[in-house]
Structure formats: structure tokens, C-alpha cells
Amino acid sequence: MNQLPVEYLFFVGAIGLVGIGVAGMLLCRNLFRVLLALVIAEAGANLLLVLTGYRWDAVAPIVLPGMPAGTTMVDPVPQALVLTAIVIGVGIQAFAVAVLIKIYHGYGSLDRRRLAAMLDRDMNELAGVGPGRSPEAPAGKRPFPPPEQQEGRS
């Protein structure tokens, strides 16, 4: 185990990527940058997963013609898992981009706090709460029918 520092470096890289990605997701206000941070965190998690199957004296899990029988190989199971995880990741990214496009068309902004304020306003309007009152206050005339009437009808 005289190669320990190399493996520590891999770990630092993978965990650093996860940390940077999570920090970006929490701190950035632009939703597109949050998506980019998610991409980075995903890459770090994949790296961490492959690292769990790594063995420092092993070769890649592919049998070559001239290979002796007892050659140690790295664990193929985490590699197979990560293989599928990466392809799922790009599908999720595309879906997130589509949702962002729709949000931008609807609200004209990608800023997280501005979007939250606008969503609050819309929800309050829908619930019949005036703009100056908090959503916890007793509502006035709501557009929905009261619950007992709904039960009686069904």
C-alpha cells in the first residue's frame, strides 16, 4: 500500500466535486446555474462510486487473449451501475432544461427568489387571499366550494 497518496487524491477530487456541486445548488440564484451545479455533483458521485470498486493492483475487467488465469481485476459491478447512471443523468438534464424553458416562457425570469415571490403571489391570488395578507391568515371568499358541499354532491 505504498500508493496511498494517489488514492487519497482521487477521494479528495470526487468529494470536492460533490461539495462544489451541492454548494452551487444551495447558493446560486440562477436556476440554470443550479442545473450546472447538479451536473457537477453528479460527476463527483459517479467518480466516488467507481472508486469503491477500485483495487490498486488490478487491471480493467476485460479478458484479453494472452491473459493468465488468476489476474486480479477491478470490481465490474459499480462500473456497470455508473454506466447506466450517466445515461439516465443526461435524460434528466434534458427534462430539466425543458422545464426551465417553460418556466422562462411563463415568468420571464430564472432568478430563484423572484420566481418564489411570483409563485407566492399567484398562489395567493388563486386562493383568494389579498396581496397584503399572509397565506396563513383566514381566507376570504375562496373560489373553491366549501368541503361539506363537495361531499354532499358526490
Partner: peptide, 15 residues
Amino acid sequence: MLRAPDVAMTEAAVG
């Protein structure tokens, strides 16, 4: 470098 050529290929093509 981690002896995962399959994953490296996927990451290069996808990521």
C-alpha cells in the same frame, strides 16, 4: 486511470 474504460467512454461521449 481507475481502470474503468467503459465508464470513461460513456462519460466522454455523454458528459
